[in-house]
Amino acid sequence: MILDELEKRLRPPARAVPSYPPKVIVLASGKPLVVRQAENDDIPILLEAIEPLVRVRKDFYDIVAARMYAELLSQYLHRTLDPYCLIGTIDGVIASIVNGRMIDEKRGMSYHTLTIHRGLRCGAHMFAAKMEHHMDVLKQEEVFIVAESYLGFKRWMIEYQLEPRPDFQHELGGVGSYALTRKLYDTYKTRLLAGTRPVPPEVLRTADTLILPDEYPQIPGFKR
């Protein structure tokens, strides 16, 4: 009984937040990338997919993977307020994961973008999907973003021309934050956001049961 009481105190209130409607993007390879929101039951396998990258020094995969691991674990154990996680799968295999949370009704916070399957711009598509979630699904006005990797900075801060918000302290620490505003989102949406809805049922079914990647381009010779 005492545990239930403590749990109540430690767990943030669950609020009804709209879910991200699944979509499909036909990649340059011709393969579909199915993007859907992760349920809590999906998180253990996502953690398993992320874990090998925690030891990859290249491209700051270690810090991004370690932090995302902790964020998703926190989401799984109900220790984050209004978190979300979107997953991109190719033939059911986890290709890319993005996450973040709502700060309040109008403002969101982007956490991380982690791409396992590289070379098809899956990370770019997933980051755009994350911004779509904040702007079009959660109807927010701005999203706070920081980058840990050079690639992330080049891709998000430069490509989206994000607004510097040096006075806002992002939860990930480090330098001052940047923000995607609705105006910027509307400017870049046509060029950077892709996807078709509804997803044909047979395609969506491929993303029902998540499959761990057999190989990681970041880890030559990886064997599970």
Binding site: I25, V26, L27, R191, A194
Partner: peptide
């Protein structure tokens, strides 16, 4: 891989 279905005929060519 790049395929004609993805980079030429694909529904999301303008972004992909």
């Amino acid at each position: 891989t790049a395929s004609i279905d993805g980079i030429w005929d694909g529904p999301h060519r303008e972004v992909v």
